[in-house]
Design a binder for these strands. Sequence first.
DNA 1: TTTATATGTCAATAATTATGGACATATAAA
DNA 2: TTTATATGTCCATAATTATTGACATATAAA
Lengths: 125, 125
Amino acid sequence: MKLETALNAFAALSQETRLLAFRLLVEAGPQGMAAGVISDALGIPHNTLSFHLTHLSQANLVSSRKEGRSIIYMANFEQMRDLIAFMVQDCCSSDLARLHQADNADCAVVEFVDCCIPQSVKTES
Amino acid sequence: MKLETALNAFAALSQETRLLAFRLLVEAGPQGMAAGVISDALGIPHNTLSFHLTHLSQANLVSSRKEGRSIIYMANFEQMRDLIAFMVQDCCSSDLARLHQADNADCAVVEFVDCCIPQSVKTES
DNA sequence: TTTATATGTCAATAATTATGGACATATAAA
DNA sequence: TTTATATGTCCATAATTATTGACATATAAA
């Protein structure tokens, strides 16, 4: 990932409405969510939200498809993954994190060495 | 991690000078780097850089210690980890990512299910 | 002490970004 | 068709953020 791409992604996620919208879309998964539904959920005027969805879209963090008169937005999980990889890759030199392909070959795994999971996020699965 | 904390972290990383400085510090590892060294490395005036380092510091992405007349900054790897956890935690509901403690108990692991490692980052270790 | 070095703070200005009213477009329902 | 719905675009204004000269402080060297 290029520096500029990462900058755009971070900028997109640094604004409250956009971060909330992005989280809704991450939660919604691949099926996505209509612009109006997001607008209602967040209580943001449709034109303001449109501006922010365009911003997220230009940062390649979401994509969209048209369906009837609605536009359905969905999170771009690949870009999210690339952004995490970007953050972690410089750690490799100091061996604080590693990024590798898991043995079963359908996972990318980020390992944080010599640390524990933050309290705020409990162990899943 | 609170929403506000994540917003501050993303905002801190969304500016070129700050992202470059942060990457230098991530590369430098726990021993850190003096403000002046960063300033020289990036070719940024010391007062401008000071503003940006304070910004990173307020976002808790770096910390600092005094050493002689220098101030040594270092990346806060824990905050970085928490930020990644924040990004990934909403995925759990749609099973696109999982965050868990590794078997050997000194790693936190983020697994991205059903995906491959981005081209830009080659497999380590 | 005096001077040089490393860094921070302040304040004015410049640059960038967000907001929402008014209007436009495109689709579906009446 | 006409009307209602869903969403986008444009533009002026408001709000936020970055830059840098001038000055301050703190430490070390001469």
